[in-house]
Write a protein that binds this DNA or RNA. Structure first.
Lengths: 171, 171
DNA sequence: AATTACATGTAATCCGTTACATGATTGA
DNA sequence: TCAATCATGTAACGGATTACATGTAATT
């Protein structure tokens, strides 16, 4: 998913500023499956505006930069529809954890223990965070996406609890 | 995980050529959680060699470029250990599918049906592929990593089967 | 007193993919 | 006969992060 489609899609769900878009992909329900920084969001928003796919109204604020609230235009909606008509590309699951496990076995087997233990903790944290978001999510599809994430994380967590004995050092 | 550590780690598991490393990350057990192209692998291998972290012996072949078989040096092993001592960064799970679901609801709800159906098919394919690899994997940690992947994919699959009714259009 | 949140934006830099270049062998 | 496999490597290009630049207000 390129940054342009991401912005278009988020704006299809409601008007937003660049700052808010960044917050959504960094902390909100989107954080589970996407990411983006100011350095890519702001330029994308500017370009999409000149292309007429989104438009922006400015809100003056005292002692702060004007708030630029973007909204999707009809052309933008059409462009988004085109993007969504294409088949989504397969997920990318980059995991330093899994790579570390394999490599650690070769060079530092005693490290595997703490790797797995930390991972169990981090899955637990992720599950809790997702459940919190789930409780505050209103849209059925939003809930569905969050539930999908929770199930996946839970499966990983359960697997590690049940199978860590297969690789951790016996005491 | 940067490309350097990836190469170092793979070479820690056994000597390999650039071609073989590429095959591992594109098709082998590594494909589940990493990726890299020739354009990044070959230059990385060259650089690691000049730095003394790996070394290469050349094998002549008739009518083919010499096979360059790389192996980890002591310095390389130490560098890898240093990398692995650091906590692995959180996984990156980029999913166009999940984003498409959310956005499709806003602009083309009738698309959700086929999106989910295709996804179910692709999870099934992934699970089968992982199970094949699992059957051929010898190392316990390798099996563990593959089993982890299978469990996660299976959970996603099961979730979609059980919950698609929540978002697909009723006929 | 210090950090976080708010709010926008640019420039340097890094990193990696895609496409190109070359060419024989094997299997369908 | 056509595609895939084997085998290495470079150059152009694109995309995104990081760091920089600026400044107030609220919270801890």
């Amino acid at each position: 998913m390129d940054i342009r489609t991401l912005c278009l899609g988020i704006l299809a769900l409601g008007d937003a500023t660049g700052y808010e878009i960044k917050k959504m992909v960094a902390e909100g329900s989107f954080s589970f499956f996407s990411e983006a920084s100011y350095g890519s969001i702001y330029p994308a928003l500017t370009k999409l505006t000149t292309e007429g796919l989104i438009e922006c109204r400015q809100e003056s604020q005292s002692n702060r930069p004007d708030k630029k609230i973007y909204s999707l235009t009809e052309a933008g909606r059409a462009a988004l529809e085109d993007s969504l008509a294409k088949d989504p590309r397969p997920d990318k699951n980059r995991s330093e954890f899994l790579a570390s496990l394999l490599f650690a076995e070769a060079v530092a087997p005693e490290r595997i223990n703490s790797l797995v233990q930390d991972r169990i903790t981090s899955h637990k944290r992720q599950i809790d965070a997702l459940k919190l978001m789930r409780a505050e999510e209103d849209s059925p599809v939003g809930q569905f996406v969050l539930d999908y994430g929770i199930q996946v994380q839970q499966a990983a967590y359960d697997f590690l609890i049940a199978n860590k004995g297969r690789i951790v050092t016996k005491l």
